[in-house]
Nucleic acid binder design. Sequence first.
RNA 1: GGGCGAAUAGCUCAGUUGGUAGAGCACUCGGCUUACAUCCGAGAGGCCACAGGUUCGAGCCCUGUUUCGCCCACCA
Length: 950
Amino acid sequence: MPQLAPAYNPNDVEERLYARWEAAGLFRADADPRRRPYTIVIPPPNITGILHMGHALNNTIQDILIRTKRMQGKNALWVPGTDHAGIATQNVVEKMLAKEGKSRQDLGREAFRQRVWTWKEQYGSTIIRQLKRLGASCDWTRTRFTMDEGLSAAVVEVFIRLYEAGLIYRGNYIINWCPRCQTALADEEAPRQETMGKLYHIRYPLAGGSRLEARGESRKSRATSHEPRAPYIEVATTRPETMLGDTAVAVHPKDKRYKGLVGRHALLPLVNRRLPIIADPLVDPEFGTGAVKVTPAHDPVDFQLGTRHGLEFINVMTDDARMTNVPAAYQSLDRFDCRSKLIVDLEQQGFLGRIEEHQHNVGHCYRCHTVVEPRLSLQWFVRMKPLAQSAIRAVTSGKIRFVPDRWRKVYLNWMRNIQDWCISRQIWWGHRLPVWYCANCARGSRLEARGEGRRSRATSHEPRATSEPGVIVSKARPTRCPACGGADLKQDEDVLDTWFSSWLWPFSTLGWPKQTKDLAYFYPTDTLVTAPEIIFFWVARMIMAGFFCMKEIPFRRVYIHGTVRDITGKKMSKSLGNIIDPLEVIDRYGTDALRYTLVTATAIGQDIALSEERFAAGRNFANKLWNAARYVLSAAGGSRPEAGGHDTKGNATSREPRPTSVSDRWILSRLQRTIEQVTSALDAFSIHEAAATLYSFLWHDVCDWYLEITKISDGETEDQRLAILTHVLETGLRLLHPIMPFVTEELWQHLTALEARGLRLEVTARRAAPRATSIMVAPWPNASKRLVNPEAERWFEQFRSVVVTIRNLRAELNIPLDSRPAVHLVTAQAPAREFFGQHQRLLQALARVGGIRVDGAIKRLRDAAAAVVDGIQIFVPLGGLIDVARERNRLSQRVGDLEQDLSRQQTRLRDPQFVEKAPKDVVEQARQREAQTRQTLEQLRRHLDVLRAM
RNA sequence: GGGCGAAUAGCUCAGUUGGUAGAGCACUCGGCUUACAUCCGAGAGGCCACAGGUUCGAGCCCUGUUUCGCCCACCA
């Protein structure tokens, strides 16, 4: 028998066990029509990623689900992989290059891409190794990468299908532009920051009539307030320099102040462009003056207005944010210099109104913190509305369920207001668009480069015909233009948004667009486990892609777990310095401790507040189990010959646990309930409940009580008890395995080895799966109704109460431990007398008393502490052992408390409403409680008398 | 501006269809009882945010309020 160390040391076992599981192919799953599949696809972490607590939680949950289903006999597949994470990865490599004093432009596109691939080969699997340390039981032979060959083919395939269906188009749109990095940024790459800025009021003179005089008038009064009937319309802006690109002024249609002005024109100060005054509900009449200048090429809202009202789009900035297409005085000025100059000029000429302090959210480049410039640009889009329809239905019909349910509303709300998806990015790392332009056909058409196009008439933000002249969409590089036969073809420079490959993940990883066996068998997947912030980016789009490509939902359940926060409720982030590194936790406490603590930290779908100390609880639990098993192994080792003897007595055929006492029947009954509770909790994604149930059962029922009972010799049934203990422990380990895979496997190996050595133990795992070499593939426990025994539970609870009450009296009265008073139990119930008569030894040992006497009625009571529990009076003779005065005080206080209790209970029972209307069992329960309180009170009062007399 | 979540023991949180509140940590007291001091035994500690309502009965259901937090959005 291998000796176990006195304490569980995770470092000794984790790596070894994981390697063994992997080598034995236990993570693998192959299509097998005879078995039901259960599939999860991992939310692919970025290749630049390193494991943080969010990953740890997310993947722990997935692993728990997968391990559970695997043990329950499902063909459980967890598909792993990583995401190429376009911008994030490009940035990492660019930073490396910067250290060498180079930029990506120095290398050129192809060399740069090659460089990223090299980086990926070197560091891209860090996160995978870290997932393995977490115990993740993914089928690593299926590891995919969003840019590997198959998945790239899927991306191209989808692009072409969407394009052909008229769902992909090219159009002008406002994007976030970083003038320093000279690239477009996704919204999430341009985080908004609360910034104190200024809100400038500018007066635009009204055109027509003889209003030109107005200017001179205003000059005198300058920035002082004017009467509203002045011949101008005042607008407010935080970015005055954009006024040079204004092509309209807008007001709310119901705004009475401007009713007469709609349809007329204003003049753009300093430029004198005629601007139509338009009405649109998009304008908030409450804000500023209620009139807004419209710069369709430099603001998302204005862009919409421009589109809707057919305005002109004037781009007034270059890629590096210098002014262009503007009067000579401002040409080539930096945007902020231009702003300053404009303010001066406007003021001088009397166009400037008030300037207010104004707090607003400004996007900043997440790399260099430069203020981002919203700017018109030619981009590719996916038309989402048609795709959204079936995705909405899938959720409203319940085919796809969110857990917790509240996320359904969030999802539907977004889907019903969905905007078109900008899928092109001006970076180099990613899937290049399968789009080519024919130089010949493009001549004379609108196909100019993005950037500072001159003035353009509004091109609508609507899908264009699939056949834009000179645009060729093709899987492979076309040799000739199909329209004109020209060979001067250039591929689009852009790459696709990272999510354009992620949204195909549930089926692209299974082989799509090929109709593979895997795809037919494992799709649709079962559960998607992810964080709330990703519902829009990913979950919603996967559902749409599922319908578009597979005509089927991608998964049945979406489990949205909480965000991991620190102890003060803040999101963990590097900049806040409040990170707890899961790998450090693993080093210090073990993987099982990390997993246990993460999973018990909170209820389903709630956020998690973490502090380092909490991991000790998980470590302690693992250690507790370790030691319980250590006890079993050493006890079994000691009694092995005897046990072998039993075998020959003809009991060998019986593999069932044979409970011979109430405690046996009690623990087995408790085990069945535990099996039921844990199984249904896991079914309902209530992992913390499953964990808590197991913790309390294994620690408090098994270790604190049953294991202690097995130590108490009563002659004949010791082996049987040990067998039962082993059985209970072994079953508990299987239930706990999904949550704490390592310690359970290690101990399970030891426990099941006992059987091989001839000890007659009930090890159902071996029986049901004789070839199970790992707890990973041992069968999930089944609750046996036959072993559920409410009567045994009742008896044992009563027994436990008596023991606890005696301990309690000993502690309360400070009876020294080395004194072993003889305890006197009195009860009128004959069965109870018999029961306690039979269990004297147990009672003595567990309550640490010298002897037990059981009677039907009290004869005489002197100098004894008293308590009543479940109709049993307990007397502990004090024999001058205690501080009488002190205990007298304590007791009288208790009497006072109890009197209050009793009166509360009695008032309730006197209420006729309660007695009539409450269910009978509730009333009955209340009555019993009251009777008990009364009895206890009587006893205590009597006992108080005793103390007073002492 | 909309939507969502939270408010329960000193701390972090549970509380399944309404029946007088639980855990872990921390704390107090007593224990090295031969599996475990990462432990054992006992204990103290709660106007369940506030105000109304429904009910015989509310932590839970309804209405409103307050305070935090998150998400979305077009405050120019």
